[in-house]
């Protein structure tokens, strides 16, 4: 088992655009305070922001967890549904199931998952339709 020296979990409410982005912004602030390399902070900030927006737009609500080990950062996004029917399709750039209200606000371009994957050194997604989605993004520190 990996030993993480720090862990922080944020609960994310579905559909609440007023606070959307606060968790990822707080994760970014935390990593900067810890003195993590700027390029890595930025990759994690982008991934966390995309993950948070996905939770707000698509899920029934969930959580975002950041774990810090001396040699890696791990971001875990978990939600209670509805799950992704076809992950391969969802990973395609430009594919989106975002509702109209999200698109009107400039979200839902269908780049979220592919952006996250680009930022990650290891990317893992598991989803069960009707149950929920769990996403893991790992970025190496060394």
């Amino acid at each position: 088992m990996k030993r993480y020296i720090m862990e922080h979990t944020y609960s994310i409410e579905a559909g609440n655009y007023a606070v959307a982005g606060e968790a990822s912004s707080s994760i970014k602030g935390l990593l900067k305070k810890l003195g993590i390399d700027g390029g890595i902070v930025r990759r994690m900030a982008i991934a966390a922001y995309e993950a948070e927006m996905n939770l707000v737009i698509h899920s029934v609500g969930g959580s975002l967890t950041i774990k810090i080990a001396p040699d890696e950062l791990l971001l875990i996004s978990e939600d209670g549904g509805p799950g992704i029917a076809d992950i391969d399709l969802a990973m395609e750039e430009g594919y989106s199931t975002a509702p109209e209200e999200a698109r009107e606000m400039g979200f839902g371009a269908g780049m979220g998952l592919s952006n996250m994957k680009r930022c990650a050194d290891e990317f893992n997604i598991h989803s069960d339709a009707g149950i929920g989605t769990k996403l893991q993004i790992k970025i190496y520190l060394k």
Partner: peptide, 15 residues
Amino acid sequence: MKLDDDLTLAVQKME
């Protein structure tokens, strides 16, 4: 703005 140059120490300070 960072707490410490050493990550482990920075985490301790953060906690």
